[in-house]
C-alpha cells in the first residue's frame, strides 16, 4: 500500500501551517493594512485544522463530499469577510493558492516514488482548485451583497416623500423611472398617504430626464394606485420638451391632472382641499 498522503498531512500539520504562512507573508502584496499577521495566522490555522481533520484517503478524490462542509463554511466566511473589507480578488486568491503550494511542497519532500507523487499531486490539485472556485464564488457573492445593499440605500434615499402641507404630500423624482424604481416610489408614496392621511399627492418629474411610453405607463400606474387608495395624484414639473415627447409618442395623460410647476400643483391642491393661503395684513408689523 502506498503512503497515505492524508495521514502524512495530519502528522505534518504544524509544518504545513508554517510553510503556508511563509508563502503568504512572502507575497509582496500582503495587505498588512487590512489584517494583522496574527489574525491571518489564526485564520489560516483554523482552516488548516478543519481541512486536515476532515481529510481522508477516500474523500480526497471527491471535493463534493459532505465531509468538507465545515471547511467550506470557514472558507466562505473568510472569503465574504475579505470581500467586505475591500480585498482584491487576487489577494483573496493568494490565500488559498498559497496553501495549495504548501501542501504540494510537503508532498514533494515526503513522497519519493515519482509515480505516487504524481497521483498525490493530481488529487491535491483537484481538491484545492475546487476550494479556490468556492473562494471566488463566495468572494463575488460578498461583493454583490455590498452592491445590492448600496442599491437599496440609493433607492430609498432617492424617493423622499415630503409632507408639504397638512394633507398634501410631494414626491420629487430624480433620475430615470424604471419598473423597479416605480415600485419603490409607489410603495413609499402609498404608505405615507396612509400614515399621514393625506388626500393629495404631487409627483414632481422635473428631475426625470426623459419620458417615454414606458415611463408614462409607470406614472399612470402610480396615479391609478393612488386613486384606488382614495387620494388624488397630480403630476407636476412637466417641461416643454417633455410635453412635446408625450404628444409625439401619442401617450394619453388626459385622465391625470398635470401642472407645469410644483407651485401650481400646490395651488391646485390647496383649492381641492379648500385651503386659502394669504399674505398676512402688513399693517400690524412695524
Amino acid at each position: 500500500m502506498a503512503i497515505e498522503i492524508t495521514k502524512l498531512f495530519k502528522k505534518k500539520q504544524a509544518v504545513i501551517l508554517e510553510r503556508w504562512m511563509t508563502n503568504q507573508l512572502a507575497d509582496e502584496r500582503l495587505r498588512e493594512d487590512l489584517m494583522s499577521n496574527e489574525d491571518l495566522r489564526a485564520e489560516s490555522e483554523e482552516l488548516i485544522t478543519a481541512l486536515v481533520a476532515s481529510l481522508n484517503e477516500s474523500n480526497i478524490e471527491n471535493p463534493e463530499s459532505g465531509d468538507f462542509d465545515h471547511v467550506i463554511e470557514i472558507l466562505a466566511g473568510i472569503s465574504i469577510s475579505r470581500a467586505r473589507q475591500g480585498y482584491s480578488p487576487r489577494e483573496t486568491g493568494v490565500f488559498i493558492l498559497s496553501l495549495k503550494e504548501a501542501l504540494i511542497e510537503i508532498a514533494q519532500e515526503e513522497v519519493k516514488d515519482p509515480k505516487e507523487l504524481n497521483i498525490a499531486n493530481r488529487k491535491l490539485n483537484r481538491l484545492l482548485d475546487s476550494f479556490s472556485i468556492i473562494t471566488f464564488e463566495t468572494f463575488i457573492k460578498g461583493r454583490e451583497e455590498v452592491i445590492l445593499r448600496q442599491t437599496d440605500e440609493i433607492a430609498e434615499i432617492s424617493t423622499p416623500v415630503i409632507r408639504v402641507w397638512d394633507g398634501i404630500l410631494a414626491l420629487p423624482i430624480i433620475g430615470t423611472l424604471d419598473s423597479a424604481r416605480t415600485q419603490v416610489v409607489m410603495e413609499s408614496l402609498l404608505t405615507e398617504i396612509v400614515e399621514s392621511g393625506s388626500s393629495v399627492a404631487i409627483l414632481d418629474i422635473s428631475g426625470v430626464p426623459t419620458v417615454d411610453s414606458l415611463v408614462a405607463q409607470h406614472l399612470l400606474k402610480t396615479v391609478s394606485a393612488t386613486r384606488l387608495m382614495g387620494a388624488e395624484c397630480i403630476i407636476s414639473g412637466i417641461r416643454p420638451e417633455i410635453a412635446q415627447t408625450i404628444v409625439h409618442l401619442g401617450i394619453d395623460l388626459s385622465d391625470i391632472v398635470t401642472k407645469a410647476s410644483l407651485a401650481s400643483a400646490l395651488q391646485y391642491a390647496f383649492r381641492t382641499l379648500k385651503i386659502e393661503v394669504r399674505k398676512s395684513a402688513v399693517k400690524s408689523a412695524v
Binding site: 400606474k221 394606485a225 387620494a231
Partner: peptide, 29 residues
C-alpha cells in the same frame, strides 16, 4: 375605504380599475 397600499399596487398591475365605486382613505373621509 382603507385599501392597503400593497393591494392597490397589485390591482393596478392586474389591470383592475374597480369601476363603479368611489374610494377614500379611511372611514371618516
Amino acid at each position: 375605504v382603507g385599501m392597503q397600499p400593497a393591494v392597490a399596487i397589485t390591482l393596478v398591475e392586474l389591470g383592475l380599475p374597480l369601476k363603479g365605486v368611489y374610494t377614500a382613505l379611511n372611514v371618516e373621509k
